[in-house]
């Protein structure tokens, strides 16, 4: 029965995607839109070509790696800082009283709004990209670590005390592991925000990277390039999300409610 449903799903999916491409091709071959918009064939041609012919300074994989590098650096640093601050705020009333007001003041400012200030301050070099990715990730991770630490089941802490655990040990062996699923959820959102931030930063001031690529396409009225860029960016986004899900499944398998 399930097999039959899966086959049905597959057929519809194939049908849907096929009709999308056909529709696209029809519009760009037979209607006036063909003057402005490239058809699927041209896009795919450029996509394949970009693996060998450089756009700007790099082939497409080069741009990919540059963008990824920027994201990973900013994201990692921000995550570590965010976890520390979030758990501190969640477990210590003092830390909460000191840091929360400043955090709440700066939090609603979207990472993209920081671009101008950061570029003025740090220039158009790599560091401003790292910082922007970091800002994108930091708020989410901190917030999630904060709520995670606040919501640790007090019964578990009482239990640990009953078993003879020292307060310091309780922090590392009970509070921290309890927060992991929540922190991970925050990290997933943070990663996609970081990815968006790096694209924005690259569109505004860079010489390479995925964001630069589509901006270049826009500047040279090369819609094909823009579309190729969008496809690549979408694929990378999916990949990042998938990687995070796999890691989550390994780290947090204990959290999935079975009953």
């Amino acid at each position: 029965m399930k097999k039959k449903m899966d086959v049905e799903k597959m057929t519809y999916a194939v049908l849907a995607i096929a009709s999308f491409f056909v529709f696209w091709w029809l519009i760009t071959t037979f209607t006036p839109a063909k003057e402005t918009t490239p058809g699927p064939i041209e896009v795919i041609q450029l996509l394949i070509d970009s693996f060998v012919t450089p756009i700007g300074n790099y082939v497409i994989t080069g741009h990919l790696l540059v963008s990824l590098r920027r994201v990973l650096v900013g994201f990692s640093v921000a995550t570590i800082l965010g976890i520390i601050l979030g758990i501190a705020m969640g477990t210590s009333k003092w830390a909460e009283a000191i840091f929360k007001p400043i955090f709440e003041l700066l939090r609603p400012i979207p990472p993209i709004a920081w671009i101008s200030l950061v570029i003025l301050f740090f220039g158009i070099g790599e560091s401003s990209k790292y910082i922007l990715c970091g800002i994108g990730a930091f708020t989410n991770v901190t917030l999630n670590a904060y709520t995670g630490a606040q919501n640790v089941d007090p019964e578990l802490i009482g239990c640990a005390r009953m078993l003879g655990t020292s307060e310091r040990s309780i922090f590392f062996r009970v509070i921290l592991p309890s927060c992991t699923p929540q922190i991970f959820a925050g990290m997933q959102v943070a990663l996609s925000t970081s990815w968006m931030a790096v694209l924005a930063a690259e569109m505004v001031g860079a010489q390479e990277g995925c964001g630069w690529m589509i901006q270049r396409g826009s500047d040279t009225l090369n819609i094909t390039l823009v579309m190729v860029g969008m496809i690549v960016i979408g694929c990378v986004g999916m990949l990042l999300a998938a990687v995070m899900r796999v890691i989550e499944r390994r780290l947090c398998s204990w959290n999935i409610m079975d009953n």
Binding site: W195, M196, M203, I223, M230, I233, C235
Partner: peptide, 11 residues
């Protein structure tokens, strides 16, 4: 869905 909104801007 996977295409971030920002990537739509040039298009």
């Amino acid at each position: 869905r996977p295409v971030p909104t920002i990537a739509w801007i040039p298009l």
